Lab assay of single mutants.
Amino acid sequence: MSGIALSRLAQERKAWRKDHPFGFVAVPTKNPDGTMNLMNWECAIPGKKGTPWEGGLFKLRMLFKDDYPSSPPKCKFEPPLFHPNVYPSGTVCLSILEEDKDWRPAITIKQILLGIQELLNEPNIQDPAQAEAYTIYCQNRVEYEKRVRAQAKKFAPS
């Protein structure tokens, strides 16, 4: 494992614990031996107030490669969400998460999670990743928002 990646992720964890947006979660997972795995984080993004996503808490896994922060983490909703920019596998399609697009090593975990929260309610229809959600979003916004509200209710924190 890269010392650069681990040191950056340790800084990220410290900064997150000191200050993070209300309702968001970002925690490194534990290895079988109980030690912390900084390369694999369990996160959760709350649906934004005043949107059909409100009330939901959407679980996301963030996986970092050894060359982080040169390369972005892979962000994957578990379980996958109904959304035009979420692949059926759950992987998020967002330009700041793509090395050859808008990724920059200075982007923080907090910025990534806030960017994904923004994307939930403002899909990028130029870059669809899920045919069904994309089609319904474009053709029947009322039905799309109904499905999103049902999903938010399903993923409401207990």
Rank of each mutant, 00 (worst) to 15 (best):
G115M: 04
C93I: 00
P128E: 03
E12M: 06
V25Y: 08
C75W: 06
F77V: 02
A152D: 00
R17Q: 03
C75F: 15
P28E: 03
Q139K: 10
A26L: 09
K101C: 14
S89M: 15
I107L: 14
S89P: 10
K59C: 13
I136W: 13
R17G: 02
P128Q: 02
R13M: 02
V86Y: 05
G90C: 07
R141P: 13
E118S: 07
P80V: 07
F22N: 04
P28Y: 00
L97W: 10
M39N: 11
R17L: 02
A152I: 04
W16M: 03
S2R: 04
N40E: 15
L63Y: 09
A156V: 08
F64V: 12
E54L: 04
F64L: 11
N85V: 06
K146D: 14
Y134V: 08
P73D: 00
P79D: 14
N121P: 06
K49I: 10
G55R: 07
L119C: 05
I125T: 09
P80A: 14
W41E: 08
L63F: 13
L57H: 15
Q111H: 14
M36R: 10
P84G: 03
N121V: 13
A131L: 11
N37D: 14
S71E: 15
W53Q: 03
H83E: 00
T51I: 03
P84N: 13
N37Y: 14
D100L: 12
F58L: 05
L63C: 06
I109P: 04
D67H: 15
P21T: 02
K153C: 09
G47T: 06
V148H: 01
T51S: 13
I107N: 14
N40D: 14
K30E: 07
T35H: 06
D67P: 10
Y137I: 06
P79F: 12
S95P: 01
S2M: 04
N124I: 04
P46I: 09
L81A: 06
P32S: 14
V25R: 13
G55I: 08
Q126G: 11
V27H: 12
R61Q: 11
L120C: 05
K30I: 10
D67F: 15
Q139V: 03
Q126L: 11
A44I: 11
E12T: 01
P52R: 09
Q126T: 14
E143L: 10
I136V: 09
G50K: 14
G23R: 04
A10I: 06
E78G: 13
L119E: 05
F82K: 01
G56L: 02
T91R: 09
N140A: 15
G56F: 00
P157T: 11
G47N: 03
L113T: 11
G56Y: 04
N40P: 06
N85I: 04
F82T: 05
E132K: 07
P28Q: 04
L63V: 14
T35M: 05
E122K: 08
Q11G: 08
G34F: 04
D102N: 08
N37R: 13
R147H: 09
A129T: 02
D102G: 15
R149Q: 13
P72W: 03
E98W: 10
P79S: 14
I4M: 13
K49D: 09
W41S: 03
P79M: 13
Y68G: 02
H83Y: 00
T135M: 10
V142F: 12
P73V: 14
C138P: 00
K110V: 10
F155M: 05
A10R: 03
S2T: 11
L38G: 03
K18V: 13
E132F: 06
C75P: 15
W16E: 03
L94E: 06
I109N: 02
L38I: 10
S7V: 11
K153V: 03
K65L: 14
F58K: 05
L60H: 05
Y87R: 01
K154R: 13
P79G: 14
E145A: 12
I116V: 13
C75V: 15
F77R: 03
V27G: 08
E42P: 03
A106R: 01
Y137L: 07
S7K: 07
F58I: 05
M39T: 10
T108Q: 15
A150V: 11
W53Y: 05
G55Q: 11
P46C: 10
K101Q: 09
K30N: 06
P32R: 15
P72N: 13
Y87G: 04
M39K: 07
F82D: 02
K154Y: 09
I125C: 11
T91K: 05
V92R: 02
F22T: 01
A133P: 11
P21V: 00
K154A: 12
A156K: 05
G34D: 10
N140F: 01
I112L: 15
K76W: 12
V148Q: 02
F64Q: 06
D33G: 03
Q151I: 09
R8W: 04
A15S: 12
L60I: 13
N37T: 12
V27Y: 10
Y137E: 02
G55N: 09
M36N: 00
L63N: 11
E78T: 10
F82M: 05
P32H: 12
P123T: 00
W16Q: 04
R149H: 10
A26H: 00
D19A: 12
N31M: 13
R61F: 11
I109R: 04
L114Q: 12
L94K: 01
L6R: 05
T29M: 11
P84V: 15
I112S: 07
M36S: 05
F77K: 02
R104Q: 04
F82Q: 02
F22A: 05
P84C: 10
S71H: 14
A26N: 04
F155V: 12
A5C: 15
W103V: 00
K59M: 07
L97T: 15
F24I: 06
P69L: 03
K110A: 04
T35E: 00
E98L: 10
F24G: 07
K110F: 04
G50A: 11
F24E: 08
C93N: 03
D100Y: 14
I116P: 02
F58V: 09
S70C: 13
I136G: 02
V148K: 01
A150M: 09
R141E: 03
L114R: 09
D19I: 04
A26V: 02
Q11H: 12
S70V: 09
P157R: 08
D67Y: 06
L63A: 11
P128V: 00
K153H: 08
I96M: 08
D127A: 05
R104H: 02
L114W: 13
A150Y: 13
V148M: 02
K153N: 14
I112P: 03
T135R: 12
I112Y: 00
S95F: 01
